[in-house]
Design a protein around this nucleic acid. Structure first.
Lengths: 231, 231
DNA sequence: CGGCTTATTGACATACGTCAACTATTGTGG
DNA sequence: CCACAATAGTTGACGTATGTCAATAAGCCG
């Protein structure tokens, strides 16, 4: 836990959100920010806590985890390097709806909620960037809801694989960015069922070895998944 | 199809989003807006079309409908009087991810996308209101994703009923705002399964006659649903 | 009142979850 | 670098929730 360094500040210049700030504003905003370096599996905050920090993934990977009765858990979404998460809770000063846990060794930037909120309120450029970011996030979730309601487990897996691939090609290789168990929960199924989903996709030219997944017939896979081009 | 009248403009003064505009700005923005009055079942736009209008429900009720292969359809969300929908597509100038259909006789205000976007970019108060609205919408969807991934069909129905009720009370009566078939799709199940979900909830004190639903034991229902207070 | 739509019920099919055993992979200390 | 433990993933057997189809019943509207 340390205050953010100048050189690291530099790297944020090109950031979707923080990059729109002036050098000065960025410095002021980040003055009280923290940078945490933590191993895979660390819990950053828990569902129900009040939103004290806006989080930015500097390195690594984070899962947002929803739980109902303290027993069942699911992964709502992953965020990776450069992604900002939990902004709606920060903007609305509401408690987190989910917990967050690193799924890789990660560096996370924590920006205190209040100064961030104040900056959004007074800085039009930042506010506009926030609007765009929130809009993108909304559309990601919409796709997920449609996925859950309209597609079977193997189709959800196939769509996910396609989202990692260059779908203009006939074939390709993708690398799973997360462990299968986590991926299963993100896709709304059990690890066992994820295995079976991989098996079912063999007919559509999907082979996997470790984290490498070979897509030998992308058109067939798209057909099978009723894959939806809209982004 | 007619240009919006002055008296109707008046009613928007108290609106979450449009109410933050100055009289002048509101007039300018709404000058080219349209007000449609249409029966239940009208399609407002289709998934994949480019976003030409921001939509505001003045009266009635609208369903956002997601479809995959032109055969299967689901309801992603309902919007009611006062709600604004499809803002992310408008802000990002992206195609709609869903279709929209009235589920009641409705009056809808259509605000042309480009002037709205320009107003957001130049008007800090509006932009801030947009940020709040997007944040609220995000959190609604998060709750839905958690629902779909963590709860059974009867639990989802129960949670939905609780969201309509005053949960501080011991019991209450709620009115279903939509037809059961539509509600079933919103909750991610078939109409047949919705019927069965109602039956299963009888043990938790739920009786329904027509659109009236009596909740006789709200604490028991909350317990059964693992209902989540976070809003 | 009759005809149309919507909701319910029953019988059945299927997808998915669960549990347990087994296998593969990863990480660690000798 | 190996051996072994710990963890993660797979497979099979089985149970359950939910979807499907068809028949019936209930609302709704002219």
């Amino acid at each position: 836990m340390e205050t953010i360094q100048d050189e690291k500040l530099e790297a944020l210049k090109g950031h979707r959100l923080l990059g729109v700030l002036s050098e000065n504003a960025r410095q002021t905003l980040l003055k009280d920010s923290l940078e945490l370096e933590m191993p895979s599996g660390t819990t950053l905050f828990r569902q129900g806590e009040s939103a004290r920090f806006l989080h930015v993934v500097l390195e690594g990977r984070v899962a947002l985890i929803g739980s109902s009765d303290h027993k069942d858990e699911t992964v709502v979404e992953f965020f990776r390097e450069g992604d900002v998460f939990i902004m709606p809770a920060v903007v609305l000063e509401m408690p987190y709806l989910m917990s967050a846990r690193t799924v890789d060794d990660s560096r996370i930037l924590l920006i205190p909620a209040t100064p961030f909120r104040e900056e959004v309120e007074s800085n039009a450029a930042l506010n506009l960037a926030v609007t765009h970011e929130l809009s993108r996030h909304w559309r990601l979730l919409i796709r997920q809801v449609k996925d859950l309601k309209l597609r079977s487990a193997p189709q959800r897996l196939g769509s996910y694989l396609l989202s990692l691939a260059d779908t203009d090609q006939q074939s390709g290789v993708v690398e799973l960015p997360e462990q299968r168990g986590m991926l299963a929960r993100r896709l709304g199924m059990t690890p066992e069922n994820l295995s079976r989903a991989f098996n079912r996709l063999q007919d559509s030219g999907v082979r996997s070895r470790g984290r490498q997944v070979m897509l030998d017939d992308i058109p067939a896979l798209r057909e099978f998944c009723a894959y939806d081009e809209l982004v």
